[in-house]
Amino acid sequence: MAASTQPPLLEVKNLRIEFPTRRGTLVAVDDVSFDIAEGEVLGVVGESGAGKSLTGASIIGLLEPPGRIAGGEVYLAGRRIDNLPYEKMRQVRGREIGMVFQDPLTSLNPLYSVGSQLVETIRTHTDMSESAAQQRAIDLLGEVGIPSPKIRINQYPHQFSGGMRQRVVIALALCVNPKLIIADEPTTALDVSIQAQIIDLLKRLCRDHGAAVMLITHDMGVIAETANRVAVMYAGRLAEIGPVGQVIKNAKHPYTHGLMGSIPKLAHATERLVQIEGTMPRLTEIPNGCAFNPRCPKVFARCMVERPDLTPVDSSQISCWLYDKTMERTGSHG
């Protein structure tokens, strides 16, 4: 977060996502704030249900009802976009923010050729002629590494393998050069051998096209290789956000620490993996104070009653009372 006069590309402020249910309102994402600079790759990690995907969907305005943004603001290049009318937001989608979903096998409409899906997207957002859009589609397919794009463009999704389809999906997300790509677990559904290729491709293309990436994943390895910064989410809240080196090598929040400990390392093959005791609470059962307190190895009295806010520590921001400098710690830890 270098200080500059320009607003960051994406700015999320105090985002709160709620699901009204018969038994009261569930808060799925609570008071989440972060920003993404131009060209930056922000990794967002956390367990299933931590609110990563919901955060991504709310930025692009595709939260599925009954989920709704109940508070906070989202700015794209200084313009507020969370309250845009539907038609205005539609024009933002695809043109300014692209999205890549998890499962390439189901992301493409089976009844249209990949070329017509590309051309359709390009022509929705630009004034390009049919033939110019067709040429651009061929170029894009070549760019995402699909061999003989001139032939493949007329083929249908079922004629592509999973990895190839994800390449097409990436081409679709990037086809009108959006400034931000939200990639929601783009490699989870793929073979391990293909995952690295797709991540490399995403990284390279976004750099070439000058697009920033919000990379949602639970694969810390992918984050370590790809991201500039990492945001760690837990139970709908941000636990820690900071430069990737800091977060991975020097995790401060006890939850991040636990996450890092649970990754196998080749160097210590015999060591038993560390595991965080317990499971993430359900949305109906989030405890008072810090949401992580029932599982935290360093919990103390204050964690049970007061909720920690994000506070700067070194170059990161942590929401944990262990790093609260305004007040002497009471009680013990460990």
Partner: peptide, 12 residues
């Protein structure tokens, strides 16, 4: 998913 993705592409 392909309808969700079509929306994410900003189609009308």
């Amino acid at each position: 998913d392909y309808i969700k993705f079509a929306r994410a592409r900003g189609l009308r």
